[in-house]
């Protein structure tokens, strides 16, 4: 993966496979603390402690027996390469939280990338799921709610994918406006 936004797409796809109906993605950038933190929280089926212990090991987990694969271990690798870390909290029937952080100015840290494309595609391909994106920096905060897309669709009586470019741009510009370095 070349962008954190692609990792986000990957981890959120786990949430979708876990039957989540609500997914919250929070990105926090702090130049002061020199940290970039990403949290992805869902209300899907969750994981047992035994599975949590296994998901970070790329050689133990196999997608043929479990709905997880290499994704989390790749993200863990990306984090440890940047003096960061990854933590998973989950409970069966309750949902899962993936909490990953990076040293913001680490040379190894991937750029956030096209977060607009990631979110826009997710919202359009899974319209039954409520997505909530919150991005905060030292200078402000930007929020995108998939409800915006549904409301636009209903108001303009258009197809959801009519709004793909527009929502992508909305997110890109919203994040750029508060961005410091990512």
């Amino acid at each position: 993966m070349r962008e954190l936004a692609l990792h986000i797409l990957d981890i959120v796809t786990n949430s979708i496979e876990a039957q989540a109906s609500r997914i919250i993605i929070a990105v926090d950038e702090s130049v002061r603390d020199n940290r970039l933190r990403i949290r992805i929280k869902d209300n899907g089926r969750g994981m047992s402690q035994e599975l949590i212990d296994r998901v970070l090991d790329p050689f133990v987990t196999t997608r043929t027996t479990r709905p997880v694969g290499m994704g989390l271990s790749l993200l863990l690798q990306a984090a440890t390469d940047c003096e960061g870390g990854l933590k998973i909290s989950s409970a069966l029937g309750r949902g899962t939280l993936v909490d990953v952080h990076f040293k913001l100015n680490s040379l190894n840290r991937m750029p956030l990338g096209e977060i607009g494309a990631t979110l826009s595609n997710l919202c359009i391909a899974s319209p039954d799921i409520h997505f909530y994106y919150r991005h905060s920096t030292d200078s402000g905060r930007f929020v995108f709610d998939s409800f915006w897309l549904l409301a636009q669709m209903a108001a303009r009586n258009c197809m959801l994918y009519t709004l793909a470019g527009e929502s992508e741009q909305r997110i890109r510009e919203g994040v750029l406006a508060i961005s410091s370095v990512a």
Binding site: L6, L9, D10, T13, G69, M70, G71, A117, A125
Partner: peptide, 14 residues
């Protein structure tokens, strides 16, 4: 959109 698909460019395809 598995890890494999995303790494291979599935987002641009979508």
């Amino acid at each position: 959109m598995g890890t494999c698909g995303i790494a291979a460019g599935a987002r641009s395809v979508m």
